[in-house]
Design a protein around this nucleic acid. Sequence first.
DNA 1: AAGAAATATGAAAAATTTTTCATTATTGTT
DNA 2: AACAATAATGAAAAATTTTTCATATTTCTT
Lengths: 222, 222
Amino acid sequence: MQILIAEDDKSIANSLKKNFEGEGFHVTIVDNGQKALDIVEKLEFNIIILDWRMPVLNGIDTCKELKLRGIETPIILLTALSEISNKVEALNLGADDYITKPFSFEEVLARIKAVHRRYETSLNELFFENITLHLITHELETPKEKVKLPEKEFELLKYFIENKGSIITKDKLYKDVWNLQFTTTTNVVEATVKNLRKKLEELTSQKFIKTIYGEGYLFISD
Amino acid sequence: MQILIAEDDKSIANSLKKNFEGEGFHVTIVDNGQKALDIVEKLEFNIIILDWRMPVLNGIDTCKELKLRGIETPIILLTALSEISNKVEALNLGADDYITKPFSFEEVLARIKAVHRRYETSLNELFFENITLHLITHELETPKEKVKLPEKEFELLKYFIENKGSIITKDKLYKDVWNLQFTTTTNVVEATVKNLRKKLEELTSQKFIKTIYGEGYLFISD
DNA sequence: AAGAAATATGAAAAATTTTTCATTATTGTT
DNA sequence: AACAATAATGAAAAATTTTTCATATTTCTT
């Protein structure tokens, strides 16, 4: 997760950065709104955190300008308690949330995760590494190409991404994807896994679907 | 749009009601949280507005209880300015927005529309009359049954609902749904319309797809 | 290393969906 | 009412997807 923080108070900025990095996030700090606008043109972020008061260009105007430019990255505003009557303004400007100082890191983290989750689901896309699964059109988008997946392959891949990183047993797939009791008389799962594997590898040159012998499948980075 | 207002201050409640009805919404008023819980069990609402302070059961606890019961209807809390430090609590309780008194009706209306729109798109469903089209699973839900639509029928119905009430020419369908130049050498559109019509009529006993001779199709109430 | 269990695979079969085609029905115009 | 244009329909053909089956490969255990 790439986070941009625009905050002129160095102690706050560094404290946030240290904490976020402890969470495995990547943080970029700028000290005014204009610099935030500049860097957003060049790099992609998943979340933008703007301080309300900043030199050169404050958080409100930065937020307004970002939205004007069509940037859809979720924005969180940091405000002092005294400025709180402006909350309506904040949300009207297009900010997705705001946090009043002083705040605990736990609060910031919770808000960020909530906003990001909300954003992801609003997009109707599932992300994994360099692939995107479009939930409405059932298209699989890769660096190489965008293809429409047949029904079963779509459902299987969706299930894999939703359960990435943990072992998925075959009977779970029979139950959840095929709505079948687990029977030994069929091997549709293996057959469909084969086809999905082939398609994924052709498109990404990566092997996302591992098999754990005797246990099930594991969807994970190559 | 069905709105439930739980507010013990009669002047506020009635003023809201009058204004909402001017907008064509249908409003139900109750004067405490317990009554709100009771009526929500019996009737369906699109938005619930809860006053923060109320006798018997206040807005916070009502909100908490509604969420506990799995009610997903968006909730907006009304709070006095002095209670504003609890905003974090409000959002954590699962309220979708909150408005501080005193408020203008315009603000309330804007918030309601925003919350409702957010809700509808977050559901990933398209509604028309008594049918629901599930955008992720491609299922058509009717009072009688829920069936999975084949790809083309799904895309066609989605297009119809998105363009309900206005004439849809055949070349628009060829272009937007089939990605084809309009050619006279095929009649896939007619064939698919036929099948969708049959399915819709079997399931709802209604005829949603009218044909406007020489112009196109019109998706509209029977 | 050999055998057994589990998984993978290519190709065929079955099922479903999409499109075409020939014909019938409907609508608007004269 | 008759004609021409447009739309609807049933059935067949074509294309695609899903499942099955027989066989090959891999993995684990001894």
